[in-house]
């Protein structure tokens, strides 16, 4: 029995989009949909989805209250600046079951990943070796 509230045409953003895993066009896990941006055009009566935001910097407002403030303070101290990564809605192929992008994720989402690879994990011998699938 399909629920009319979840048909393809209508969706609840909090339920169907927020906090879903994002994969880019290379199938790499980019992060979660941490926030969604709405915009009003000149002619619009209601706002439209203009972009999804990801990266831990977008998470602070979602947590709100004391937890959110603590989170923001933590990120400031950690020196993560530049605000969240913005992915225009045109690049989102679908939201469910996971958010898929039609483009490669902007390089900035990999900042922490790249830093850790270069300075920590990648320096340890054997970092490039995966399990043999058949083993």
């Amino acid at each position: 029995m399909p629920d009319p509230d979840t048909t393809v045409e209508v969706l609840r953003l909090g339920f169907a989009a927020l906090d879903r895993q994002i994969y880019d066009s290379d199938d790499r896990p980019v992060g979660k949909v941490d926030d969604i941006e709405l915009a009003w055009g000149e002619a619009d009566t209601a706002p439209r989805v203009s972009a999804v935001l990801t990266d831990t910097a977008a998470l602070g407002p979602r947590l709100s209250g004391r937890l959110g403030r603590a989170w923001a303070a933590f990120l400031r101290r950690a020196g993560a600046g530049g605000g969240p990564v913005r992915i225009p809605i045109g690049s989102v192929v679908e939201f469910r079951p996971a958010t898929r992008l039609s483009m490669r994720a902007p390089a900035r989402v990999w900042a922490a990943e790249d830093w850790l690879r270069e300075h920590v994990i990648g320096r340890i011998p054997g970092a490039g070796r995966a399990d043999d699938p058949g083993q």
Partner: peptide, 24 residues
């Protein structure tokens, strides 16, 4: 999984550095 990072022990650590850093 909470933050949506690449994870997995079967992956080469260099392709999931945040996960391996978290484990370490």
């Amino acid at each position: 999984q909470y933050f949506g990072w690449a994870w997995g022990k079967a992956r080469a650590p260099a392709s999931a550095p945040r996960f391996h850093s978290a484990v370490l």
